[in-house]
Nucleic acid binder design. Structure first.
Length: 442
RNA sequence: GCGGGUGUAGCUCACUCGGUUAGAGCGCCUGAUUGUGGUUCAGGAGGUAGUGGGUUCGAAUCCCAUCACUCGCCCCA
């Protein structure tokens, strides 16, 4: 080392923010697989993709999340004051922005039914954990307009087509929340039951009893669960006091049976916000503790946000969680079709042109860019799992030929450039077709 | 927000009661004579032990703080 060591400035390397992750090239094929499968199925169901801003006026989420929601209560939002002195918030979920866009663009005027889907990042300031991140990605749908149970079945059928296409074993936990009016009656009944038992409840549940008694059902505390097991059930209450909601629920159950969608009724599945109505559900998979998605009917939300009264139902599915549930059962980057191996300066100088020719006919190919030896280039071809090495030296150049070596069999033939192009293009086309039928060519 | 665990080479991990130039496997680079990969063999690069402070003659090892990851609670996708 002749160089005098230049004093290194000691700088802290910058890390990605807590709870966020880089998705590297070896992982993106799995992501694209999920996203493209979702897009394709949504399209099949005649849902149109909508892309809304990553941030919205804070007020939008403050209104949609409601005062008793944990997103708001525990300050799980990334809110900031912009130079215009307005408060904005990185979207913590996908529905609010979609509904806002629905209203702002008067999508209701285009017809009685709006079918929208979205894919994108959401942001929540939470303690990161397995399957829980500060930036996570969701794909979701919103079906606005209809109130009929067939529309509930439509979005659930779509979700299960997605799970089936991905090879994901999943089922749905289902409940009905009634209407805001009937729910109030139930909450009174529930409160009447819980109030005398207040002292036996956990601290959290005592708070819930105050703010939103429905959420006591959510408690994982063993004593709470015992107490709640004896409480009046929402579905029983609806049976007697809200026959419309019950009929809706029964109809949906019938459709789920028709569609062979496995479901399980879960009385603990509750959402407290006023605009929720009737159907509430969560998608679960046996290989994951947490749910991979959830949703429900929100007949009051559009109106709440200043739009025309519009029933709606939708769901959101966490892409990270789907990938966790899929595990290794996911595509990896496609191997290279050809790797160009160059000998000598002339060959190296002609490499941009040669590569360009092969790429124009669709061949997935690459070459060395750091002046490595022939042996090292062959090693690289092998490491990239290239099906062919294209060897180009003075001998080949002189005759406008190129040596095509099959890396698996080791066989090598000297072909005219034209023939090599035709051969590789045909092979590449075969692979593309094969991947297409394997469901990976998106 | 609360509680537990972890942090040593690009990756997965060792280092016995604190004691010399911190190791291994994999990966990476080079070579094994003239233009051929995978196997084998030889050699090489790469770490101020997450970061900062403290205790000590001496710290990867003990203590504190901080950051990150991770598991659980809570909640959610």
């Amino acid at each position: 080392m002749a160089d005098t060591p230049t004093p290194k400035t000691i700088t802290k390397t910058i890390q990605s923010p807590r709870g966020t992750h880089d998705i590297l090239p070896e992982q993106t094929p799995a992501w694209r697989h999920v996203e493209n499968t979702f897009r394709e199925i949504c399209t099949r169901y005649n849902f149109g993709e909508i892309r809304t801003p990553a941030f919205e006026a804070t007020e939008l989420f403050a209104r949609t999340a409601g005062d008793s929601s944990d997103i708001v209560v525990t300050k799980q939002m990334y809110s900031f004051i912009a130079p215009d002195e307005q408060s904005y918030t990185l979207r913590p979920e996908g529905t609010a922005g979609t509904v806002r866009a629905f209203i702002q663009n008067h999508l209701n005027e285009r017809g009685p039914v709006s079918k929208l889907f979205y894919i994108g990042p959401n942001f929540r300031y939470e303690a990161p954990q397995a399957g829980r991140y500060r930036q996570h990605h969701q794909c979701g749908v919103e079906l606005l307009g209809p109130d009929a149970p067939e529309s509930d079945a439509e979005v659930l059928a779509l979700a299960f087509d997605l799970f089936r296409a991905l090879g994901l074993e999943a089922s749905v936990k289902l409940n009905s929340l009634g209407t805001p009016q009937s729910r109030l009656g139930y909450i009174d009944a529930l409160r009447a039951y819980l109030e005398p038992l207040r002292d036996s409840l956990s601290e959290d549940s005592r708070k819930r009893l105050q703010i939103n008694p429905l959420r006591v059902w959510d408690s994982k505390d063993a004593r709470d669960q015992e107490i709640v097991a004896g409480a009046p059930r929402l579905l029983d209450y609806l049976q007697q006091n809200d026959t419309d909601s019950m009929a809706h629920f029964d109809a949906l159950r019938g459709y789920l049976d028709d569609l062979h969608i496995p479901y399980e009724i879960d009385a603990a599945l509750v959402r407290g916000l006023d605009y929720y109505s009737r159907t509430a559900f969560e998608f679960v998979t046996p290989n994951l503790n947490s749910s991979i998605g959830g949703g429900g009917r929100y007949n009051g939300l559009v109106e709440e946000l200043g739009g025309p009264p519009t029933p709606a139902i939708g769901f959101g599915i966490g892409i990270e969680r789907v990938l966790l549930a899929l595990g290794e059962n996911v595509p990896s980057p496609p191997p290279l079709t050809a790797f160009l191996v160059m000998l000598g300066d002339t060959a190296r100088q002609s490499s941009p042109k040669i590569l360009s020719l092969f790429r124009r006919v669709g061949v997935h190919c690459d070459c060395d860019f750091v002046g490595r030896s022939l042996k090292a280039q062959m090693r690289e071809a092998n490491r990239q799992k290239a099906r062919f090495a294209l060897i180009l030296g003075d001998n080949e150049l002189a005759e406008n030929k190129i040596a095509v070596k099959n890396m698996e069999s080791g066989e090598q033939e000297l072909l005219h450039m034209d023939d090599a192009l035709i051969k590789l293009a045909a092979i590449n086309a075969d692979e593309t077709v094969a991947r297409y039928f394997a469901g990976e060519a998106h």
